[in-house]
Amino acid sequence: MSVLGFAILAGLIIAGALVVVLSENIVHAAVALAFTFFFVAGLYVLLGSPLLAVIQFAVNAAAIPILTLFIIMTTQSRRIRPASGVFYLVAGFLALVFLVGLWGYLGAPETAFRPLGPEGLGVRLLTVTLLPFEVASVLLLLAMVGAVVLARRREE
């Protein structure tokens, strides 16, 4: 696995995420979100999982940002008023504490890298996680019905 590839992807992901949380223009943030997730899909390729990468690209990097943009248009949001400095301080502090705390724990024992092809993943999806797979379908159904019920116009 190429160190350079990982470094470039990681840099792009972090940069994209920073734009998402810092940009005052919400459209820029949404576009940055799409790019960030696109680079995460690249990360999955690096991890030897093209299936995951494709789905990440289709769902997270395409569908979700488009939906987000649609909502942005509907609600006519453009700019995000910056939060007060205190918020930034608190949030920054929290994030820093979280990071530093985690860094200390990152001594995970090294193990060999062993990727798995798409068929393997697909087979496992319908054997090992058959029940969760079905549950996920209920979850999507619930979300769909919920969204319809909450958003549809009142019938007279």
Binding site: A10, I13, I14, A17, L18, V20, V21, I26, A29, A30, L43, L47, T68, I71, I72, T75, S77, I80, R81, P82, A83, F87, Y88, V90, A91, G92, L94, A95, L96, F98, L99, L102, W103, L106, A108
Partner: peptide
């Protein structure tokens, strides 16, 4: 990878706290 994920999580956490638009 875990380090990258931790950085990303910290950024997201920062965003949840500071953003003042529900979409964001």
């Amino acid at each position: 990878f875990l380090a990258l994920s931790a950085v990303l999580f910290a950024i997201g956490l920062f965003g949840v706290i500071t953003r003042r638009n529900l979409i964001a």
